[in-house]
């Protein structure tokens, strides 16, 4: 029975949870400000949750984790920069950015989905490199695009947009501060968590509609889905559209909380971090649930938030960043080498 339980929790998830618990204990014993740390953990969780949730549709539809998330992310960045260019601020800026980027992301997801349907079985490799490519194309775009807002272009005649655009006074921590309150010294980013909860509910509802159920059938067993009269390609396409649209909205939520829009090469590895988060949450390359995404987002980001101050006390170095690289890629390797059941039976 013990091994059954262990199997259900999953060894990586167990190790990471224990490690996180250990770090929390260490932080506490070092006398670090736990309230601040806890609210930072919550904020990082909320910042990333939507990007991690975006992995669910493609995994469920059998196309694997969406390594092509940058397709959605760049659309979100376009939306956010347009909002500033048009001089919106506050909630109008946020809603404008989200409103612009979701359809853009959906369109990008549609194109990306067409590609995915032609490379079944190789989605991860192709997605990764197509994602890298689109990020570098967008680098050229950021250089050439005719933006004029002084907040975004270089002050002294440099070319193109800045590498990071400050959101101060536009929508910096707009959601985080909305209805936020203080609990035992920890600042609760209510708005951010509400948005996360709202996204979860929407996704949960969608996954239980006929289309959502069909998508999950397609991923679970494409032959079965075909025999039930479903078009496998159609639902994989839908999954890609939803995932990229979520990625587009997700990066805006991320940026407002972070306080900066990061352009150029920044989105390069974002897909990888989201992929590892959901895998840490216990998902496999074939199946994922909302709970796994949330747990994963919390564990992964919690670990990073707390590792930095603890490491700084224990030793003076960049261990936090190194740890992030090792953990996030290690968990993906683990998932890749696991003998998985299911998938495309052909």
């Amino acid at each position: 029975m013990g091994s059954e339980l262990l199997n259900r929790i999953g060894i990586p998830r167990l190790i990471i949870s224990l490690f996180l618990a250990f770090l929390v204990a260490a932080a506490f014993s070092f006398g670090l400000p736990m309230g601040q740390i806890f609210s930072a953990m919550l904020t990082r969780f909320g910042m990333n949750a939507l990007l991690v949730l975006a992995m669910i549709p493609t995994i469920q539809a059998g196309a694997g984790p969406n390594f092509g998330l940058p397709f959605g992310i760049i659309c979100g960045l376009i939306g956010a920069t347009l909002a500033i260019e048009l001089d919106f601020s506050g909630f109008p800026a946020f809603f404008f950015a989200v409103g612009v980027s979701i359809p853009l992301g959906a369109a990008a997801g549609w194109l990306y989905g067409l590609l995915l349907n032609r490379v079944k079985g190789q989605e991860m490799t192709v997605g990764t490199y197509m994602g890298f490519s689109i990020v570098s194309v967008m680098c050229i775009f950021w250089l050439m695009a005719p933006y004029t807002s002084p907040e975004m272009i270089w002050p002294y005649g440099g070319e193109g947009l800045r590498v990071t655009v400050v959101l101060d006074g536009r929508m910096e921590q707009l959601l985080d501060r909305f209805l936020s309150f203080n609990l035992l010294g920890a600042n609760i980013p209510t708005g951010l968590l509400l948005v996360t909860a709202f996204s979860c509910v929407l996704l949960w509802l969608f996954m239980r509609t006929r289309a959502g159920l069909a998508m999950s059938m397609v991923g679970s067993n494409p032959r079965f889905a075909e025999a039930s009269g479903l078009s496998v390609n159609k639902y994989r396409l839908l999954a890609s559209v939803i995932s990229c649209a979520m990625g587009a909205a997700g990066i805006i939520v991320y940026s407002q909380s972070y306080g900066f829009i990061q352009l150029y090469q920044a989105p390069l590895y974002m897909a990888l971090y989201s992929v590892s988060a959901i895998l840490i949450g216990g998902a496999s390359l074939q199946r994922a649930t909302i709970a796994q995404a949330l747990i994963g987002a919390f564990l992964f980001n919690g670990l990073l938030v707390i590792a930095l101050p603890v490491a700084n006390v224990a030793m003076d170095s960049d261990i936090s960043e190194i740890m992030r690289v090792i953990i996030s890629n290690g968990i993906i390797l683990y998932a890749l080498t696991r003998k998985e059941a299911g998938g495309d039976a052909r």
Partner: peptide, 9 residues
């Protein structure tokens, strides 16, 4: 197992 069932559902 290939066509008739969703084994993980």
């Amino acid at each position: 197992r290939g066509t008739g069932l969703l084994l993980d559902d």
